[in-house]
Amino acid sequence: MNAILWPEAYTPGTTENFASNEVIVAGLTVADIWPLLATPSQWPTYYANSANVRFHDGKGPELADSDRFYFETFGFPVEAQCTEYVAPAAGQPGRVAWHGWAGEQGADNRLDVLHAWLVEDLDGGRVRILTQEVQKGKPAQQLHDTKPNPMINGHQDWLDGLVAAARKARQP
């Protein structure tokens, strides 16, 4: 199976917080999942912890490399920029990642994240969806120290909602 590609400054284990969630489900394909993930305006329709998505500079509605966008999640107003966008193709997983930030650079409330997704078809009519996020800053440390971990639980809700929305879209 494939893995997330991390820039050196965001290598898991070198930041204040890291969350990793994955599902493998039968009966869905990358083609079912990708449009729901790659179009941020769809996120609030299946993930309650996402709101007020908008693109900057007339971009969108689908993500593309270097696109700037905004959304709210976990109580943070997040400015973001797409750092990787590789649409799925035969034998190639879909990859999307963004750098997101909240707060002024250098401030105690500054949060920097890199959130990455990998979606790939597996044999037997299965799809694998992997989402991982690394976080830097004091808010990231607070999230890391909170039990249960809100990032792990929140991202699991995102995955579960994504799968449910894809299944619903397949229904006749």
Rank of each mutant, 00 (worst) to 15 (best):
M1W: 09
M1L: 12
M1E: 12
A3C: 15
I4M: 13
P12K: 03
P12L: 05
G13Q: 07
G13A: 05
G13K: 03
T14D: 01
E16C: 06
E16R: 09
A19C: 15
E22C: 12
V23Q: 13
I24R: 13
V25G: 11
A26F: 05
G27E: 04
L28F: 10
T29Y: 10
V30W: 03
A31F: 07
D32S: 09
D32Y: 06
D32R: 02
I33Y: 03
I33H: 05
I33K: 00
W34S: 13
W34I: 00
L36W: 09
L36P: 04
L37K: 03
A38N: 15
A38Y: 00
W43G: 14
P44D: 06
T45M: 08
A48Y: 06
N52G: 13
V53R: 10
F55D: 00
F55Y: 14
D57F: 01
D57S: 03
G58E: 07
G58H: 02
K59T: 09
G60F: 04
G60L: 08
G60T: 00
E62M: 13
L63Q: 08
A64K: 12
A64P: 08
A64F: 03
A64I: 06
S66D: 12
R68I: 05
F71Q: 14
G75N: 03
P77F: 03
P77H: 01
E79H: 14
E79Y: 14
A80R: 00
A80H: 04
Q81H: 02
Y85V: 06
Y85A: 12
A87M: 01
A90V: 03
G91N: 09
G91F: 08
Q92H: 11
G94C: 03
R95P: 04
V96N: 12
V96M: 03
V96W: 09
V96I: 11
A97D: 01
W98C: 12
W101K: 13
W101E: 14
E104R: 10
Q105Y: 14
Q105I: 15
G106F: 11
A107L: 10
D108A: 15
L111I: 11
L111F: 14
D112N: 10
D112V: 07
D112L: 08
V113S: 11
W117P: 06
V119G: 08
G124Q: 06
R128T: 06
L130W: 00
L130A: 11
E133W: 01
E133M: 02
V134D: 06
G137C: 08
G137K: 00
K138L: 14
K138R: 15
A140F: 06
A140M: 02
Q142H: 12
L143R: 10
H144C: 02
D145V: 09
T146E: 05
T146S: 06
N149E: 04
M151V: 08
I152N: 11
N153E: 13
G154K: 01
G154Q: 00
H155N: 15
Q156K: 13
D157Y: 12
W158I: 07
A164H: 02
A166S: 14
A166C: 11
R167A: 11
K168V: 01
P172V: 11
